[in-house]
């Protein structure tokens, strides 16, 4: 291994965040908020679907947050933040006009080559809870041009009706018709819920699919992956046609601090989006 001691120009400011401004806030649930954010120091984020940002509040810290908007040349991007930790609880009190900081985009997402390889295929999204957000960047990219794909199926499961994210958008998607289908399920219904009740795995048999031309994308809480993948494999979906995106603790986002390691992989470098075949034997992955 050869070592470059001179610090490369790109790395001088490795840990320096850039300032951005909140344009619009929408309250999604009791703990989730949606933010449209304006870049102040560059023209566009230039990210791939599935990548994340290190969101930074001076005095509080940083947290990795998935980019919820599709790639764009515009100077805005979107985040959906669940108030769970120290930073996100404070972050979700921010209002339009408030400023915060970001580093990134980081991580390996769905790059152009992967997205190209998906054309003509049946895209099956299986998303649980706030796992919708990291894949919304890809969903909103592909439903712009649904004709490029054989079919787009979105399976979305939540624990509670009131914790569903992007409810308005889900309505639009379910009315799109054509080759776009949406199925929703909740673990526990309420008096207004007329949809399916149960675990997301019960939706998988209801999807009409041909294992020869399908790409499945699975994102959700840790417990979800192995059951969903088992169901997919039972339906003869090939292992190499399954993608997962994995959440881990992160401190640096640049492959140093060690927190996000999944066996020998860094979620912030080789991930968060992995092909299932790359992690199926990794004891720490799923």
């Amino acid at each position: 291994m050869s070592v470059q001691l001179d610090i490369k120009e790109k790395d001088v400011n490795l840990y320096l965040p850039e300032k951005v401004r909140i344009k619009r806030v929408e309250e999604f649930t009791d703990i989730d908020k949606f933010f449209e954010v304006e870049l102040l120091e560059r023209d566009s984020l230039k990210h791939n679907p599935g990548q994340f940002l290190a969101v930074s509040l001076p005095g509080i810290g940083e947290a990795p947050i998935s980019i919820a908007s599709p790639p764009s040349d515009g100077n805005t991007f979107e985040l959906c933040v669940r108030a769970l930790g120290e930073l996100t609880n404070i972050f979700n009190k921010l209002k339009a006009g408030d400023e915060f900081y970001i580093r990134g985009p980081f991580g390996h997402g769905f790059d152009d080559d992967i997205i190209k390889s998906m054309q003509g295929k049946h895209l099956l999204f299986i998303l649980g809870g706030c796992g919708y957000s990291p894949m919304r960047s890809l969903i909103n990219l592909v439903i712009k041009e649904p004709q490029k794909y054989k079919k787009i199926s979105i399976l979305y499961g939540c624990r509670m009706v009131k914790r569903r994210l992007y409810v308005n958008e889900l309505g639009t998607i379910s009315n799109m018709g054509g080759n776009v289908e949406l199925m929703q399920i909740v673990d526990k219904g309420d008096e207004d819920w007329e949809g399916e009740v149960g675990l997301i795995t019960t939706l998988i048999p209801k999807v009409s699919l041909d294992p020869e031309d399908i790409v499945a994308i699975v994102v959700g809480p840790p417990v979800m992956y192995k059951y969903v993948i088992k169901k997919l494999l039972n339906r003869d979906v090939k292992k190499e046609d399954i993608y997962v995106s994995l959440e881990r603790r992160m401190k640096c986002s640049v492959g140093k601090c060690g927190h996000c390691q999944i066996g020998g992989f860094y979620a912030c470098q080789q991930g968060p989006v992995f092909r299932y075949t790359d992690v199926e034997d990794n004891e720490e992955a799923l």
Binding site: M1, V3, Q4, L5, D6, I7, K8, D11, V12, N13, L14, Y15, V254, G255, K256, Q269
Partner: peptide, 16 residues
């Protein structure tokens, strides 16, 4: 350590 901190993203603090 120097190899690790220089790898992919060079850590400016360590390398300096």
């Amino acid at each position: 350590l120097t190899e690790a901190f220089a790898d992919v993203n060079g850590d400016p603090n360590y390398l300096s």
